[in-house]
Every structure is written in C-alpha cells, then in structure tokens.
Simulated assay, not measured.
Amino acid sequence: MTDSRPVPSGTDADGGVKAVLHWYLRRSRQTLRWKLEGLTERQLRMPMTPTGTNLLGVLKHVASVEVGYFTECMGRPTSIEVPWFADDAEPNEDMYATAEESVQWIMELADRCAAEADEAIEALDLDAPGRVPWWSQPDVTLGRLLTHMVDEYARHLGHVDIVRELLDGQAGHTTAHSNLPSGHGADDEQWWMDYTARLRQIAEQF
C-alpha cells in the first residue's frame, strides 16, 4: 500500500531537507497521539506483549528520547528531567508510566519534549555538530539525529498500530486516511474476517 497524502516540498540542498525531515517527525508525533485517543486509562497502561509493550509507555519513551537527542546531545540546555534514564533507574523504566505518573502528566511531558526539540531543530543547521556518548560513533550532526528520530518513531508506531488493534480493533494510519484497502468489500467487517480466515488456512498448510 502507498500513502497518497502529499509530501512536503523542498528537498533541495538549501535547507529543504531539514524541513522535510521535521515534517515527518511532527507527523509521527501526531499519529502516535491519535493512536492513544479514545481509550481508558487501563487500556493505555495495559501490557500487550510478553515484553510489556503498552501505549502510554511508548509515548513516554519516544518523547523523552527525542528531547535528549535534540537538547543535551546537541549541547543545548533543557528544563526536562528524565530520571528513568539514570544509571540507577529500574530497567525499562522509560517504557511504562508509574502509578504516580498520570496520563495527563505523560501527555504534558510529551508536549514539553516536542516543544524543546522543535526549538532546537529550528535553530540549528543540518550539519550542526552533536555528540551521543553511548553510541559507538558518538560524533553526530542534527541531520543524523533527525533521521534517527524519524526511524525511531516509525519503529514504535508499528508497535502501536498492533497494540491498538489488539485492544479495540482500531486500525489505520489516521482518522482522515486509514491507508487500509477499501472497495470490493474491504471496508466491511465480514470481509476482514474472511480475509484473515483465508490467511490462517494458508498458514495451516505448513
């Protein structure tokens, strides 16, 4: 399937590439937030895989990773504390919200992280130098980190797509553009039941 929505213009070497990467980053943030809408707090926190993947935790993780890359790793100040990344933090503490961390608090954290990240991205050139001490090749540029964060969101949005579908059957890219097949009955619940049954029948042959 292909995404039929328009892609931002301006991919030449005079700064347009940064605008495009930033556009994809912002779109990924919006898609992630949409995937969390309309669910109960229990659903948002519920681990849905053997390794504990949950929707609210994914938001906490990507937001705090993002602000770290675009502020501290780019030599810029930040007002946001992320103690779940400290050396003495519990393993995987960035991948779930504690009982004391409310849904509203996580949402506001994500907004603050995005705002500081955007401020850095807008202020710096693509070739602005940075450093990620825990990477094997720590010297980076803003362009490298922008590309990395677009990839980071893409990976976790795949997780979120599946988790949301398991929770309540909601699927698709956005409310305005599902990116799922339509026509010939493909927008009908029975069509999908028959489709998955056919795939299951094929798989059972092996």
Rank of each mutant, 00 (worst) to 15 (best):
E122C: 07
Q104T: 15
E165K: 12
M95S: 09
V150F: 10
L167G: 08
T31E: 06
A176V: 05
P8V: 08
I121A: 03
E152S: 00
G10R: 03
K60H: 12
E93W: 01
S64Y: 06
Y69Q: 06
L126I: 11
L145H: 02
L36S: 09
D88R: 07
C73Q: 14
F70W: 07
I80V: 13
E108P: 02
Y96P: 03
G57S: 02
M74S: 00
T71S: 00
D111H: 07
G169K: 11
H22K: 11
L56F: 14
R5V: 13
T53P: 00
H173D: 10
G172E: 01
G68Y: 05
W105C: 07
I162W: 00
T175C: 06
E116C: 00
P138Y: 07
K18D: 08
G10Y: 01
I202E: 15
T2Q: 13
A171Y: 00
E119F: 02
V17F: 11
R42S: 12
T78A: 09
G38T: 13
D12Q: 13
L167S: 07
E100G: 05
Q30H: 13
A86L: 02
T174S: 15
V150D: 11
K35M: 09
M107L: 15
D194I: 01
E37H: 12
T11G: 12
R33K: 07
D125T: 11
A97L: 12
S79M: 10
G143C: 04
V132G: 03
M1V: 10
T49H: 01
Q205P: 04
W23K: 01
V160I: 15
R112K: 12
V160S: 04
H177K: 09
E119A: 15
M107Q: 05
P181R: 08
A13N: 03
F206A: 12
E90G: 00
E41Y: 08
P83A: 09
L55N: 05
A19D: 11
A123N: 00
G16W: 06
I162G: 00
T196I: 10
W105V: 04
T175I: 10
P47I: 04
Q137T: 15
E165Q: 15
D14G: 04
V67P: 05
P181K: 08
P77M: 06
A197G: 09
E81H: 05
A63Q: 02
A197M: 03
E152T: 02
A123H: 05
L55M: 13
G183N: 04
M1A: 13
L39M: 10
H173Y: 15
R131Y: 13
Q170C: 08
M95V: 04
R112G: 09
H61I: 03
G15Y: 05
V160M: 10
D168A: 11
D3T: 08
P83Y: 08
G75Y: 07
W134H: 08
Q43E: 15
M149H: 05
A63C: 02
I202K: 14
F70G: 04
S64Q: 14
F206M: 11
A186T: 03
L167F: 10
A120C: 06
L146N: 05
L142I: 00
H184M: 15
R26Q: 15
G52V: 03
M107E: 11
Q43S: 14
L199D: 07
R112M: 11
P133Y: 10
G15P: 00
A97Q: 10
Q190I: 12
G143P: 02
A99K: 09
M1R: 09
